[in-house]
Write a protein that binds this DNA or RNA. Sequence first.
DNA 1: GGGTGGGGATCGGGGAGCAAG
DNA 2: ACTTGCTCCCCGATCCCCACC
Lengths: 343, 343
Amino acid sequence: MSTDDEKARVANIFDVARLAGVSHQTVSRVLNELPNVRPATRLRVEQAIKQLRYVPSPAARALVTRRSRTLGLISAGRPDYGPASMALYFNEAAREARYAVSMASMLKTDAATMRGAVEMLLRQNVEAIVLIATDRDAVESVNGLELGVPLIAIASQGNVGFHRVSLDQYQGARIAVERLIELGHREIRHISGPMASMDAMERHRGWRDVMAEQGLVAQEAFEGDWTPASGYRFGTELARDADMTAVFVANDQMSLGVYHALSAAGRGVPGDVSVIGFDDIPEAEHFAPPLTTMRQDFESLGRDTMATVLAALRDDESPPAVAPRVPELIERESTAPPRSPRP
Amino acid sequence: MSTDDEKARVANIFDVARLAGVSHQTVSRVLNELPNVRPATRLRVEQAIKQLRYVPSPAARALVTRRSRTLGLISAGRPDYGPASMALYFNEAAREARYAVSMASMLKTDAATMRGAVEMLLRQNVEAIVLIATDRDAVESVNGLELGVPLIAIASQGNVGFHRVSLDQYQGARIAVERLIELGHREIRHISGPMASMDAMERHRGWRDVMAEQGLVAQEAFEGDWTPASGYRFGTELARDADMTAVFVANDQMSLGVYHALSAAGRGVPGDVSVIGFDDIPEAEHFAPPLTTMRQDFESLGRDTMATVLAALRDDESPPAVAPRVPELIERESTAPPRSPRP
DNA sequence: GGGTGGGGATCGGGGAGCAAG
DNA sequence: ACTTGCTCCCCGATCCCCACC
């Protein structure tokens, strides 16, 4: 009683059984919440568990049950505000559901890299794989891999072969463009994200559809790469178009580049040109002028993703698709009616 | 021979042994790179492994070796550019070293949350825990937890009880302030990060020391919270000080808020006030004007962190401290000599 | 017949001891 | 002296069968 004999050795199920005065069998029954255990017995076992700070070995458990209570998370691409937020909130949701998350993040999204990441995750016995990648190819290449566990992609397009959860990029884009039209704009241009990105495609589609529905001419969009630099480049080109009075930019970072280009060209925002972005990054509120943009609720997305994972784990058949949430228009000071509405 | 009987079953060590015509013992010897295996035999085994796409079960291995080849990563706080980049690059470095990463990220950094994260990771049998948290308390509370595995903190202060790796915040700050002085500024103010953050403290200390060394008066710094909003708030106050000609801002996001406040007050950058930020986020280049700032090399930091982890794993005694890398001054257009140097 | 215990197989490897080529 | 194979136990659980009260 003076000193514990058991040095650094951690307790196992037999230690618990001995302390509780039961068999290891009964401890197992308690652990796995099986019926046919008298409440009093269960209590004794639980106390022994607490007293010994006993935690079942996940390795041993995984070995025999072939289930690891671990989820794989792949994040491919730059850790921009969106992906980073998704990863964070999904991680929190997973922890709440008492799942561990094994993560593989990488800059490159080529098939070989993705494949390597998937194999590493599978090796860990993950029960499902969550994929954060705006790139369509990234999703396809993982999807083609026959992984043996559910794949849940945070993606705004595609549907066969994997579960999907997303925010409604298309509707978000529509809302942005409709607002510009409501303000009186007619010449509304678009700087899109890379067309390899599904989100970029959806936002582009939203812009194009609204323009068409309203009988407006949608000039060809510029295809950016999400970076401020590309926003700057195309903003410079755009600034030369005297008719253009508004730009719908596919994300906030590019909007910043557009600001830069516009002001370099002597065209004021929103006096000469209105700008709407997408994402509502923390910086957007303090752009000069503060940026009107579409806010995305990544926290809810994280929870929705986890819910979809759990559903997929419970039941291999019907993925109860969560309705994509629609981004919210945050109107700040980068939008205004055009200076001289068309005659 | 016509159809494989083994359906979805994955190969195990005995399958490999059979195919290679050796015993499982020999396969094990090859796997663990033990001596006393004839090259020809080794080759046959390796081919069998490749052919069957055999991968040793980590669970089984972990069970018997008590080593999981998994690292725990805790990221506490908002997923800002810095932390998100660190996580990404560390993850890549870990994968290169064939380690899996189990991740726990959370917004809140209180002791209870941190403790929960640590316990979850420990349960996973992680071999070491890497902690990304600028908050001093976060590091302390984890460090006090007696976790039984090495703790590697990406932190710019503290040293006892855990391994530490960092970028040299202090030198970075010194370089920034020295540059402002070189340009002729004397009234150099500072907007710091939250003093709970070690990085913020180091940057503050760098500013203060240089000011003192140069015989300049360091007015009390404003303590921000990293957000553009706080930069805006203090920028507004700062703008009222007519003597002030330069601000060293502890990060780029707050610099944006400062820009906003300054322009609202009618003071131009860099004409009236020079601004230097910290981090070099992708947006910084396209602020108006493009921001002069201190660039941090997170990719190298990720590799340094992994190297420190491996060293700590090899040898419990001497952590071969990696020399912190010094941030690099990226001079853009937010800095210039003061309009009217002091008489 | 509900609650328990005993015994043992099993998961997929690591590794010891020993014999044999 | 090397290389290899065999046999058997171990890690820490899950779970099945079968008593036993």
